[in-house]
C-alpha cells in the first residue's frame, strides 16, 4: 500500500507542469524515503531527476517499494482538476494497476477522487557520477527564464561563458547576435534576487535553447535556480521544490564539429 498526502497540493501541480512537456511518461519510484523519478527525453539529450522526500508529506506510507509507471500528460490533466488550495493524496494498492488521486478542499467540504491506469514502462536508469563542477551560478529563476526566452528570438543555441567577473549568455543567428551579461551581486537586500558565482575554473559551454526553455517550466517552483557547469560535461539546472526536494535537469552540451 502506498499513500502520500501533500497539504500544499499546488506544489505537485507545479512539479507536473515542470516535467510534462519534456517527458511523455515516467516511472515514479516510491520507497520509505520518498518519491523519485529519473527519465530522459525521447531524444536522450536531457534527463530529469526529481526527488520528493517523505518528510514533505503528511501522512506518508509506503509498505513496500513500488514503481508507478505514469503517463505524465494524463496525470497533468487530472491535476488541473485540483484547486491550488487543495491537498492532494496519491494512493496505489499493492497489486493494482491503477493509481488514485484525491483532492480535498481546505475545509474538507469538497473531496474529489480520480483513478488513472498505470503503465508498464521500460526504463533505463543512468548512473550520474558525483561531479565537482568548475562553475556554480545561482540566479533568480525568473531572470534565467527571461534570458532563455529572449535569446530564443536570436538563435537555437546559447553559449554560456562563466568567469569570476560574471556570466555571459550569447546567441547568434540569421538576424544577428545577442549577449546578456550578469554580474555577481550577492549584496542585494533580497536573497532571492542575488546572482552568485562559485568558480574554480572559467568555463564556456553551448546548449540548445529548446531544452532550456523546457526546464524553465519549473520556474514557479522556486525563486532561484542553480546552474552547475564544467567544460565538456552536461549542464545541471536545479530548482528546489519548497523544503521537500528538488528537480534537476541534465543537458548534454553541443560540441564543435
Amino acid at each position: 500500500m502506498f499513500e502520500a498526502r501533500l497539504a500544499q497540493g499546488t506544489l505537485l501541480k507545479k512539479v507536473l507542469e515542470a516535467i510534462k512537456d519534456l517527458l511523455n511518461e515516467a516511472t515514479w519510484d516510491c520507497n520509505e524515503n520518498g518519491m523519485s523519478l529519473q527519465a530522459m527525453d525521447s531524444s536522450h539529450v536531457s534527463l530529469v531527476s526529481l526527488t520528493l522526500n517523505a518528510e514533505g508529506f503528511e501522512p506518508y506510507r509506503c509498505d513496500r517499494n513500488c514503481s508507478l509507471g505514469i503517463n505524465l500528460a494524463s496525470m497533468s490533466k487530472i491535476f488541473k482538476c485540483a484547486s491550488n488550495e487543495d491537498s492532494i493524496t496519491i494512493k496505489a494498492g499493492d497489486e493494482g494497476d491503477t493509481i488514485t488521486y484525491v483532492f480535498e478542499s481546505p475545509n474538507g467540504d469538497k473531496v474529489s477522487d480520480y483513478e488513472m491506469k498505470l503503465m508498464d514502462i521500460e526504463t533505463d536508469h543512468l548512473g550520474i557520477p558525483d561531479t565537482t563542477y568548475s562553475c556554480v551560478v545561482k540566479l533568480p529563476a525568473a531572470e534565467f527564464q527571461r534570458i532563455c526566452r529572449d535569446l530564443s528570438q536570436i538563435g537555437e543555441s546559447v553559449t554560456i561563458c562563466c568567469t569570476k567577473d560574471g556570466v555571459r549568455f550569447s546567441a547568434s543567428g540569421d538576424l544577428g547576435s545577442g549577449n546578456i551579461k550578469l554580474a555577481q551581486n550577492a549584496n542585494v537586500d533580497k536573497e532571492d534576487e542575488a546572482v552568485t558565482i562559485e568558480m574554480q575554473e572559467a568555463c564556456t559551454l553551448t546548449f540548445a535553447l529548446r531544452y532550456l526553455n523546457f526546464f524553465c517550466k519549473a520556474t514557479p517552483l522556486s525563486p532561484q535556480v542553480t546552474l552547475s557547469m564544467s567544460n565538456e560535461v552536461p549542464l545541471v539546472v536545479e530548482y528546489k521544490i519548497g523544503e521537500m526536494g528538488h528537480v534537476r535537469y541534465y543537458l548534454a552540451p553541443k560540441i564543435e564539429d
Binding site: H44, S46, L126, G127, S157, L251, A252, K254, E256, D257
Partner: peptide, 14 residues
Amino acid sequence: GTKQMSLTNFFKKK
C-alpha cells in the same frame, strides 16, 4: 557548426 551530444555519451546505463 556544432553537434548536439547525447547524454548517454556521458552517463552510463545502470
